[in-house]
């Protein structure tokens, strides 16, 4: 009797402690938002909603607005996802479902190493290797510093996150599920589709959302290759600019307090953008999950 009460107590404590740690995440976010709000207040009150839809970024005239940066951020991240999701997933499937050789261990470690390379190194590699290569192979591309190069470099940078986490998720799917599919005579494709994909789906989405998060907020490497031009152009071969890049570019040197405040407002906009993008992603997932796991 007594033992059971003690046991329950332990469980309650465990739940409370873990919840405390979990709760600290939104708490941190809240303080961060508050600090950003305070620091960007002069810009918010000065420009109002016009800030979001304007096209001008002129530090000398103290005129600031966000639209070109929002555009550049969204499009470069979309390019990155369009490339990195299929590639990363394919790579993860290969590593966990297909290959059984020693080679795959090396590849898996190498993929993780990509995460350790400082972004300034990606940037230099982007200028000297990736940009010129893309200009050579893609007709119509005049110079390496453009939206497309920015998207491609982001894709490479989020590849480790998507591949490594998807691979772990696939491997965590119990073998018994695969075996029962194989026993029914399913091919490897059918086994994957029927037995692995469903249980792994929420984990895959988690990996993709983490990748997207990194793409939206990545700074140094994109800054070095995207051309940093606050203009909305329909062409992917023209220079563009992202929210994170302009913050990194100008934060250290901003002289007027309005400029500084506008930069912090951009950070706030990026935050809101993430909330929206993640919301949409979640909705999509929720629908697909229903399809695959009806109960």
């Amino acid at each position: 009797m007594w033992g059971r009460i003690e046991m329950k107590k332990g469980d309650a404590w465990f739940k409370a402690v873990t919840f405390g740690f979990a709760l600290s995440i939104p708490f941190l976010l809240l303080i961060l938002i508050l600090i950003l709000l305070i620091q960007s207040w002069s810009s918010i009150s000065h420009f109002g909603f016009g800030f979001i839809f304007g096209n001008v970024w002129d530090p000398l005239a103290d005129k600031f607005s966000a639209l070109p940066f929002i555009y550049g951020t969204l499009v470069s991240s979309l390019i990155a996802l369009a490339i990195a999701v299929p590639l990363g997933m394919g790579c993860a499937i290969y590593l966990s479902e297909i290959s059984h050789s020693k080679v795959k261990e090396y590849i898996a470690v190498m993929v993780e190493l990509l995460a350790a390379i400082p972004s300034v190194v990606y940037g230099l590699w982007g200028i000297f290797v990736l940009g010129p290569w893309l200009t050579r192979v893609i007709p119509g591309m005049k110079y390496g510093s453009c939206l497309l190069t920015g998207g491609v470099i982001l894709a490479i940078m989020i590849l480790p996150t998507i591949t490594a986490i998807s691979r772990e998720v696939f491997q965590a799917v119990p073998n018994s599920l695969r075996e029962s599919a194989l026993a029914l005579g399913a091919t490897r494709w059918e086994t994957f589709r029927l037995a692995v994909f469903g249980p792994a789906l929420s984990g895959i989405v988690g990996a993709i959302i983490l990748g997207l998060g990194r793409a939206l907020g990545e700074t140094m490497a994109v800054t070095m290759v995207i051309g940093n031009r606050p203009e909305i152009s329909a062409s992917l071969f023209e220079p563009s600019y992202t929210l994170a890049s302009v913050i990194a570019n100008e934060f250290a040197e901003a002289t007027s307090s309005l400029n500084l405040s506008a930069l912090i407002e951009l950070a706030l906009i990026l935050l809101v953008l993430t909330i929206i993008v993640n919301g949409i992603a979640r909705l999509l997932v929720w629908k697909t999950t229903l399809k695959y796991n009806p109960n």
């Binding site: 976010l29 990194r214 793409a215 939206l216 907020g217 990194a248 950070a267 993430t274």
Partner: peptide
């Protein structure tokens, strides 16, 4: 947590 992951590290 997802929102936190996309905040630029400089911020």
């Amino acid at each position: 947590a997802d929102v936190l992951s996309s905040i630029p590290t400089i911020v």
